[in-house]
Nucleic acid binder design. Structure first.
Length: 732
RNA sequence: GGUCGUAUAGCUCAGUUGGUUAGAGCGUUCGAUUCACAUUCGAAAGGUCUCUGGUUCGAAUCCAGAUACGACCACCA
């Protein structure tokens, strides 16, 4: 035996495990199923330490249950990660001087597909390197054809149940990414911008003004009303007064609405319903026009007169200059601090824009989820996370599932061209020219087939009629170009991954543990719960285990710009997989963040070596059985071993992995190595007892440190099974 | 503003559900090497378990309040 444990052999060990087919469970009716659906990592990205965390925790549970004799299924997959991936791909295009707008959507999709295929092996290879004993035969990608079909069926079913509707609402639109986002994907940033106090002349008394403070003067030309609070005694008299739009001279009545805060700003607001969520709601209530001032390209519309076509920031500058010159700016607060919505992806300013989108009514889905939590059909592990989940479920708004990107599952909605001539489309003609216009008009010049072939995107007006169909319902139809929010398909993941294979769902559903980082609680876990219950009337999993985020040793978030990102594979190569796994799991608790640095990993590498060397002592030590003075010591050792088995088993059954790892670490090092081996050296216990105790420890430690325990096990002569991975969990 | 969480050794964290003397990893100090392991071993230093009050025979653990820090959500015309 080598003098120190050498992690270079880990890949050989992994290969033996794979060859033994032990990752694939038998659907034995006499066995208990234990199922974990892996949170699918982005197919396009290498792993970070957070992934190593989920691999560690899930693999521990799977190996434990496999050894216990359960039908342990760990079902792996990867995610197409719609916006993330398209964003990365577009950056790559930009390097070649190209953009998404140079391609029709089908070509672009094919290119991204190819790009993802090229990269997708990396994440899987890395998970294997970490020792993941997942059933790779069941590997599923979120864009596999049978997954797509399943997602389509779900959408049809939701539609039949009246849970899908199309509506024009304000969406959080990122002009740069060219897509709308759900409320969850918007990040707020503190910004310092000028606050302009704009004077509106009163129509019947042009020397008097009403002043409104705004950071966004640019859509002013489209505003039609101002508002004050009806309870505001100082300004109540303004209700019903008409002022003039300082840009256009148009008449603007002042209305009353409670939403205005009299203490804020000047106590008077301008209403821009098409570009502000509050104003949108007020406009709906008072039935005001919702004039669009900003296009999806982030430019002022042609109603802006001399400012038409200008980008938002440039327009702001010029409009402020115009207002100043004409005496409509009372003052400017240059250091106004406020929070502004930005794109979580590219951090551009989000433009709220009205756009027809598909929505899912969430209320009928959240209620069963809340009930399931209340009735403990699903248990949440992770400090305080259950309350957070409940809070989300109680306050959730309808879910906008439309995304204006191509990398995803295309929404199976078709518009009949003849009935909807005012759908606006953008496409590349056969001659390669970009054409934009309304369908009815364009069909006079191009056949529909040419339009659909070169189609980039379409926007169907809110009142368009549509049918839901997985295939082209007939001649004269054009398909929606939006795709589903990635989370709409991954929200069905525990159901779809089991449904796509004969018999799996019946045997393995509901799954056992859903293990993931708590930061995707609202995106993913909540939606799996909602959609899982909707699709099956059963919870998709009985336990949720939220692990914390991994931060660096100083507690900072890992980020590329700080340069403190740890590549798990670097650590694995340096210290071994087992060391990293132990470092991530030992003495940690679900739901709270963990600071992990290299020193802890190094410490756990030492532990791996300790296991190896204890085995070396047993294998290479004296084989002569000592003559015992009494059997007392032997019995003591065996009694304590069975206590350890009992305690460790209880800890694992209650998902206290951090505690179990720490406990076994202590018992192995401080008791077995420091005391039991020393007793043997002194001839106080038999070699048989010493060996039996080691066997038990290798079994108990195997879920946590699979490689070194397997390597050590292979050195022993009295093996009951050829591989430790398939050995039985010790019983008390 | 709302919801939630955290506070334990120099640093990073556990603490098995209220029970002797509160633990680990890393770090520090002193000592040890032909012995399974220097990726080791032995020894040591290091804690008013944030503060105040309460419940209890007994509190790091339960309750109330304070302070500090953190997360998420809402909102800022």
């Amino acid at each position: 035996m080598e003098k120190a444990y050498n992690q270079a052999h880990e890949t050989d060990i992994y290969q033996k495990w794979e060859e033994s087919k032990s990752f694939t469970p038998e659907k034995d009716p006499n066995k208990k199923p234990f199922t974990i659906i892996m949170p699918p990592p982005n197919a396009n990205d290498p792993l970070h330490v957070g992934h190593a965390m989920f691999v560690s925790v899930e693999d521990i549970l799977i190996r434990y249950h496999r050894m216990k004799g359960d039908a342990a299924l760990w079902l792996p997959g990867t995610d197409h990660a719609g916006i993330e991936t398209q964003f990365v791909f577009e950056k790559k295009l930009a390097k070649d001087g190209k953009s998404r707008f140079d391609f029709d959507r089908e070509t672009l999709f094919a290119k991204i597909w190819e790009y993802v295929q090229d990269n997708s092996g990396v994440a899987v290879a890395q998970m294997k390197r970490l020792g993941a004993s997942a059933d790779w035969d069941r590997f599923t990608f979120t864009l596999d054809p049978n997954v797509v079909t399943f997602v389509y069926n779900t959408f049809e079913r939701l539609h039949k149940d009246n849970l899908v509707y199309r509506a024009e609402k304000l969406v959080n639109y990122c002009v740069k990414c060219g897509t709308g986002y759900s409320e969850l994907e918007v990040e707020y940033e503190e910004r310092i911008d000028p606050l302009y106090y704009v004077k509106y002349p009163i129509k019947d008394s042009p020397s008097e003004f009403v002043t409104v403070a705004t950071v966004r003067p640019e859509p002013l030309f489209a505003d039609t009303h101002l508002a004050v609070n009806p309870k505001d005694k100082k300004r109540k008299h303004l209700v019903g007064v008409t002022v003039l739009n300082p840009l256009t001279g148009a008449e603007m009545p002042i209305i009353a609405d409670e939403f205005v805060d009299p203490a804020f700003g000047t106590g008077v607001v301008k209403l821009t319903p098409a570009h502000d969520a509050n104003d949108w709601a007020v406009a709906e209530k008072h039935n005001l026009p919702r004039n669009v001032a900003i296009t999806m390209q982030g430019k002022l519309t042609d109603k802006a007169g001399q400012f038409a076509g200008l980008r938002v920031l440039e327009a702001r500058k010029q409009i402020v200059a115009f207002l100043t010159t004409n005496g409509f700016i009372e003052k400017v607060d240059e250091k106004y601090s406020h929070r502004i919505a930005t794109c979580y992806r590219c951090h551009s300013v989000i433009e709220p824009l009205p756009l027809p989108q598909f929505f899912i009514s969430v209320k009928p889905l959240t209620e069963p989820a809340l009930l399931a939590i209340k009735n403990k059909q699903v248990k949440i592990h992770g400090t305080g996370r259950e309350k957070i989940l409940v809070n989300w479920l109680k306050n959730l708004r309808d879910w906008n599932v439309s995304r204006q990107i191509v990398w995803g599952i295309r929404i199976p909605v078709w518009y009949e061209v003849a009935k909807n001539p005012n759908i606006s489309v953008t496409f590349l003609s056969e001659s390669g020219e970009k054409v934009r216009g309304e369908l009815g008009e364009l069909l006079n010049h191009y056949p529909l087939s040419e339009i659909t072939k070169g189609l980039q995107s379409l926007i169907a007006p809110n009142d368009s009629t549509f049918v839901i169909s997985q295939n082209n319902p007939g001649d004269g139809y054009i398909q929606e170009t939006d795709t589903f929010d990635t989370w709409f398909s991954s929200g069905q993941w525990p159901v779809v991954t089991l449904k796509v294979r004969e018999g799996d769902f019946e045997y393995f559903y509901p799954t056992s543990v859903m293990e993931t980082a708590y930061d995707i609680l609202p995106f993913w876990v909540m939606r799996m719960l909602m959609l899982g219950l909707y699709l099956t009337n059963e919870v998709p999993f009985t336990d949720v285990y939220f692990h914390g985020l991994i931060r660096d040793e100083q507690g900072r978030k890992m980020s590329k710009s700080v340069g403190n990102v740890i590549n798990p594979i670097d650590l694995v190569e340096k210290y071994g997989s087992d060391a990293l796994r132990m470092a991530l799991v030992m003495s940690t608790t679900p739901g709270t963040d963990n600071n992990v640095g290299e020193s802890k990993v190094r410490g756990m590498r030492n532990f791996s070596n300790k296991i190896w060397n204890a085995t070396r002592y047993v294998v290479e030590g004296s084989k002569e059985e000592p003559v015992l003075a009494s059997k007392l010591r032997d019995e003591e050792v065996l009694t304590h071993i069975s206590e350890i088995v009992d305690t460790a088993t209880k800890m694992l059954d209650s998902l206290k992995l951090g505690l179990a790892a720490e406990y076994l670490y202590q018992e192995f090092w401080r008791w077995y190595c420091d005391q039991v081996i020393e007793m043997h050296k002194k001839g106080e216990i038999t070699t048989k007892t010493l060996t039996r105790a080691l066997h038990t420890f290798l079994n108990l430690l195997h879920p946590f440190a699979p490689y070194v325990t397997e390597a050590s096990y292979q050195q022993l002569s009295d093996k009951k099974t050829p591989l430790l991975i398939t050995a039985s969990w010790p019983v008390k």
